[in-house]
Design a protein around this nucleic acid. Structure first.
Lengths: 336, 336
DNA sequence: CTGAAAGCGCTAACAA
DNA sequence: TTGTTAGCGCTTTCAG
């Protein structure tokens, strides 16, 4: 009742050796029914629980997966995390969380976590490692799965953001729009190559439709509803304003809607807006947007990692998740 | 470069004993400058990292805090979790997450986690343990902090929901309302005594102002925007409808706004609405609501737990966090 | 200030 | 099928 029972106490109680108790603990088939029963009874009676630290030290595996992700204030992280958690939990792995806010923190955590004594595997969410780090993982044989991040040498589950930019723009084109602007974050931000990809998709769809790209139709701003409002304002007060605006995020789409409202521009009659992400607010404001499977991405990332662990084989798995347009009420044919 | 360096390798390299390396690792003052330097150099050269499992086993502490919380799909959990994470991270504790969806899962996790070999301490978020579980924690001397949950024998950080119901109602009364309805979840749900508390606060404010409670002004529904809309509808089509509705959550407030919109009832001119929680959407829809400090609650919960660990003393700390009304645009004087 | 040595609680050969 | 035993890598007396 006081000090915790150890494997020795159980052995004594069941009148067997600790090795046998260990066998029962690990479901070894090489134990007779009767012995197994006695041991289990002793375990129950003593309320025995194996000491995880001892187990880890002895067995050389931690039964722990480290999950590293930035901020986790964005709704998308939560959903991804849930997907990861559920899969790990089913497979009886502990999930340790490391949140990263700066590149230095990222480097520091990744360096520490590259040691196999820390975790059996790593999941990096929205956090592409650099080449040196990837190399390190390979050298230390640390299994890694990237979720919403990419590195050529590692397993990943991602969305094709070029495709995302493409389908959003194409959707607008098919609606009849020709004057389509793109409002985004700055294209080359440290953690987010996706920003550039979406832009490329936008350009590609335009080109395919034979619509000339107009530089004044592409504006960048740091992320946020207010800055987006400002940028949208300049877009909408252009001499020849766009009839549709595609934004790199729902937050920016909402800022764009604010600007349209201020200027008395009716959505979707006079302006179509397409966002990206399908955050919760998107539903509330009836925003047409590009949706990616968040929960699934995390879940599949965890599955990939576990399969890596099981096979002991580090051949990278690559999984591209589908993206789709969710049509709501912020888009219509131009002038319609 | 291949197999991980151990403390012995470092000792050899630095030409000292493993005990000395251990001392350096643990910042023991009993090491000479020169020796310390040599050891640190060896550590660097070998890229040595102490094996956490070995450390835990030997030292008898895990350097890990387990955080148990339900669902974690609600935005409030994320904020609380961030608060917890930041504090633990600063103090160099690992945070292991357990998500709980059913009472059985809760019981199972809590039983396992009550063993000191699992974690140095526990934080339960929005998850009140039952008496037996609390008793267990006390017996096993497992330090526990409750965040947004209450048990008389354990440390906790909470909000006073009676107070919350009270200030919301009183705010409406001071605005001049006399016909104030309350729309809530069912009062007695397993994990949420807060529902009943808010109701009590509502009753108390009414009584204090000499306003008779009208049973038809109190409606309950399972949580959700749509069911809230339905219930608000019945409230608003009463022969003598309320001029203000206080809801037990922002989601329900938004459902209430939906109903008012359908019925052509202007907010705030013809109807005032006050929510509870201050979720992100609340800001978007300009909802007046009762706000509680989410990040801080988690942060302080972690602080309390760490102080429990340090002092080795399990005297419960009790922390009540302030609640406040955030005035936005869904409230006004009646008929105003 | 430093080292030798005894564990921490478990697993996994290896024997029997 | 079961037991004996040697570690896993570290911390911590206890001597010196």
């Amino acid at each position: 009742m006081t000090a915790d029972a150890t494997i020795r106490d159980v052995a004594k109680q069941a009148k067997v050796s600790t090795a046998t108790v260990s066998r029962v603990l690990n479901n070894s088939p090489a134990v007779s029914q009767e012995t197994r029963r006695r041991v289990q009874e002793a375990i129950l009676r003593l309320d025995y629980q194996p000491n995880p630290a001892a187990r880890r030290l002895s067995a050389g595996r931690t039964n722990t997966i480290a999950v590293v992700l930035p901020l986790f204030t964005l709704p998308s992280f939560v959903e991804r995390l849930r997907g990861i958690h559920d899969e790990l939990s089913i497979n009886d792995y502990d999930m340790v969380l490391y949140s990263v806010d700066t590149p230095e923190q990222r480097d520091q955590h990744l360096a520490r976590l590259a040691h196999p004594s820390r975790a059996d595997g790593l999941i990096l969410v929205s956090l592409p490692p650099n080449d040196q780090q990837a190399q390190r993982f390979l050298e230390t044989k640390m299994p890694v799965a990237l979720v919403d991040a990419y590195h050529p040498d590692l397993s990943y589950v991602m969305v094709d953001d070029v495709e995302g930019g493409y389908i959003a723009t194409k959707y607008l084109i098919e609606l009849g729009h020709r004057k389509i602007a793109y409002l985004s974050d700055f294209l080359d931000t440290p953690f987010h190559p996706s920003m550039r990809h979406r832009y490329e998709g936008y350009r590609k769809a335009l080109e395919e439709a034979g619509i000339a790209f107009r530089p004044e139709y592409h504006v960048c701003a740091s992320h946020g509803r207010d800055t987006a409002r400002t940028m949208a304002h300049t877009l909408l007060t252009l001499a020849d304003p766009p009839t549709a605006i595609f934004t790199a995020s729902d937050t920016q789409a909402i800022g764009t809607m604010d600007a349209a409202f201020e200027l008395g521009i009716h959505i979707p009659k006079a302006l179509s807006v397409v966002g990206y992400d399908d955050i919760r607010d998107a539903e509330y404001v009836k925003l047409t947007t590009v949706q990616q499977p968040l929960y699934e991405s995390g879940n599949i990332g965890a599955q990939i990692l576990l399969s890596l662990l099981e096979s002991g084989n580090l051949t990278p798995h690559e999984q591209v998740m589908p993206l789709k347009i969710i049509e709501r009420h912020t888009t219509a044919a131009p002038g319609g």
